[in-house]
């Protein structure tokens, strides 16, 4: 039974692993931290798996556990804090030589998103994943109205970071 459970879990996780990668993409700044968080999310998913009854899609369930791990459970290592500081310094230099090419703009956008706080990142993540406000609100545990309000504030904040 246990082997069966393991097998079905790994099979589904393997198929949907990009969801975890994308969470890591937003919440970490380097490969080590990325792998570290990936592993912690995998552990938490596996632990919660016996309770997964299939009344929601496996992928939907992954979003929730993945974000919960990134926002609440995961403990940052010292190394990561240092890289974050490094990134923001680099960002300031780059912002001065801002040019309009799309690639450059994207680079700056990703850096700007990395400057948001954990909750704001979660909103951006779910937005980028095309989740509607209902799902955003139930994932975070806030009302739909508040999710909208917060999302608008995040957009404004991103604008200010990009055009100080």
């Amino acid at each position: 039974m246990n082997k069966e459970l393991e097998h079905s879990f790994v099979e589904q996780l393997q198929k949907h692993q990009n969801i975890i990668h994308k969470v890591c993409r937003l919440y970490t700044n380097n490969a080590d931290a990325h792998n570290d968080l990936f592993q912690e999310i995998t552990i938490q998913l596996w632990r919660a798996y016996p309770k997964f009854r299939g009344d929601s899609k496996f992928s939907t369930w992954m979003y929730r556990v993945g974000l919960n791990t990134a926002i609440t459970l995961y403990r940052k290592s010292k190394r990561r804090v240092n890289t974050q500081e490094f990134d923001s310094v680099e960002f300031k230099i780059k912002a001065e030589e801002y040019d309009d090419t799309e690639e450059q703009q994207l680079k700056l956008l990703y850096k700007a998103v990395h400057q948001l706080n954990d909750i704001e990142k979660a909103l951006v993540f779910l937005y980028l994943e095309d989740k509607d406000y209902r799902e955003i609100s139930t994932t975070l545990g806030i009302t739909e109205v508040n999710a909208r309000v917060k999302m608008n504030r995040v957009k404004k904040k991103l604008k200010t970071i990009l055009n100080p």
């Binding site: 393997q14 592993q39 912690e40 552990i43 403990r75």
Partner: peptide
């Protein structure tokens, strides 16, 4: 798959 198996059984470092 073979990389995910050992990963899910590693020790958690959650709060």
């Amino acid at each position: 798959d073979s990389e995910i198996y050992p990963m899910m059984h590693k020790k958690s470092s959650s709060i």
